[in-house]
Computed example of a mutant assay.
Amino acid sequence: MIDIEHLETWVGRSETLRDVITPFPSNALAATLNRDEIYQDGAALPPLWHWLHFLKVFKLADAGYDGHPTLGGFLPPVPLPRRMWAGSRLRFAAPLRIGEAIEKTSAIASVRHKAGRSGDLVFVTVRHVYGADARIEEEHDIVYRDAAVADAPVSDAPVPDAPVAVPVMAPDTWDFAREMVPNPVLLFRYSALTFNGHRIHYDLPFCTGTEGYPGLVVHGPLLATLLLDLLRRQLPDAVVTDFEFRAIAPVFDTAPFTVHGAAVDDGYRLWIRRADGALAMDAKAVVT
Score class of each variant (00 low, 15 high):
194 T>M: 14
182 P>M: 07
218 V>E: 04
195 F>L: 14
231 L>D: 06
174 W>Y: 15
200 I>T: 08
197 G>I: 05
221 P>W: 09
187 L>F: 10
182 P>F: 03
161 D>V: 04
225 T>L: 15
211 E>K: 05
209 G>I: 02
189 R>A: 02
182 P>W: 00
221 P>C: 09
157 A>P: 00
180 M>D: 07
230 L>Y: 04
150 A>Y: 12
220 G>T: 14
153 P>L: 04
222 L>H: 07
203 D>T: 13
232 R>D: 12
158 P>T: 05
224 A>D: 06
192 A>V: 14
177 A>P: 01
159 V>F: 08
157 A>C: 07
198 H>W: 12
197 G>L: 00
198 H>T: 13
236 P>W: 09
215 G>K: 10
153 P>C: 01
157 A>L: 15
187 L>T: 06
220 G>H: 07
208 T>R: 12
215 G>P: 09
212 G>Y: 02
165 A>D: 03
167 P>E: 00
146 D>W: 06
226 L>T: 05
183 N>P: 05
145 R>D: 10
181 V>Y: 15
193 L>C: 03
148 A>C: 11
225 T>P: 08
198 H>M: 09
239 V>R: 15
195 F>T: 08
221 P>L: 14
162 A>G: 00
171 P>T: 07
221 P>R: 10
236 P>Y: 11
181 V>P: 01
219 H>Y: 03
162 A>F: 08
188 F>E: 00
143 V>R: 02
157 A>I: 05
150 A>E: 01
229 D>I: 09
217 V>Q: 02
155 S>T: 09
213 Y>F: 15
171 P>N: 09
193 L>G: 08
172 D>L: 14
225 T>I: 12
233 R>A: 14
217 V>G: 00
177 A>M: 06
218 V>F: 01
147 A>Q: 10
227 L>G: 06
184 P>D: 08
169 M>E: 14
192 A>T: 08
171 P>G: 13
193 L>N: 08
176 F>W: 15
207 C>S: 13
215 G>L: 03
222 L>N: 06
161 D>A: 13
187 L>Q: 02
235 L>T: 10
203 D>E: 07
199 R>K: 15
164 V>R: 15
231 L>Y: 03
163 P>C: 00
148 A>R: 12
239 V>W: 09
144 Y>K: 05
165 A>C: 02
184 P>T: 08
171 P>V: 11
185 V>L: 12
161 D>R: 04
171 P>L: 02
186 L>G: 01
233 R>W: 07
179 E>W: 03
188 F>I: 04
233 R>P: 02
213 Y>I: 00
163 P>R: 01
150 A>G: 08
187 L>C: 06
151 D>V: 07
170 A>K: 04
221 P>S: 12
167 P>V: 02
191 S>F: 15
166 V>A: 05
233 R>H: 11
215 G>H: 07
236 P>S: 14
146 D>Q: 15
161 D>N: 12
176 F>D: 12
204 L>I: 13
173 T>C: 09
186 L>H: 02
189 R>D: 03
229 D>A: 13
191 S>R: 08
223 L>Q: 14
168 V>G: 00
152 A>W: 09
205 P>F: 12
220 G>Y: 04
217 V>D: 00
191 S>Q: 12
201 H>T: 11
210 T>S: 10
219 H>F: 07
152 A>V: 04
191 S>G: 09
